[in-house]
């Protein structure tokens, strides 16, 4: 079973994503911040991660970079409430950049495509 790491500081979002992805048939681990995400990566080899760019400026990117350092091949979907970073990093720093929305369709489709 493919393993997905969900990184988000909002409890509700973590829960929502977990339910959605589990419903899609994946094993889901959740992390509330960068360090715990990196800690989780020590124990488990994930097939996909969703990352909340919740932090301003470089901080979100730094987490992404550390994660890439640990596992260069790990696909990362940035899931952010910030629309404005989409063009900054969306195109290359991650495999996908999805602005958070109550409508999960786009996220589910992307996850399905990557893990497909």
């Amino acid at each position: 079973m493919k393993k997905i790491l969900v990184i988000d500081d909002e409890e509700n979002i973590r829960q929502l994503y977990k339910e959605e992805f589990e419903e899609m048939g994946f094993e889901v681990t959740v992390a509330g911040d960068g360090p715990s995400a990196l800690a989780a990566m020590e124990k488990v080899k994930f097939d996909l991660a969703t990352l909340d760019m919740r932090m301003e400026g470089m901080d979100g990117i730094e987490t992404l970079r550390r994660m890439k350092e640990k596992d260069k091949g790990l696909p990362v979907i940035i899931s952010s409430a910030y629309e404005q970073y989409k063009n900054d990093f969306g195109s290359w720093a991650s495999d996908a950049y999805i602005v958070k929305s109550a409508d999960m369709t786009a996220l589910r489709e992307t996850v399905g495509k990557i893990l497909g």
Binding site: N12, I13, L16, A81, Y82, Q84, S101
Partner: peptide
């Protein structure tokens, strides 16, 4: 605006997401 969007969007995602579920 970015802050407001961020702060509002997160709860909206929860509300909307769970409502869909």
């Amino acid at each position: 605006m970015a802050e407001i969007a961020h702060e509002i969007r997160n709860p909206l995602v929860s509300i909307g997401g769970f409502t869909r579920r």
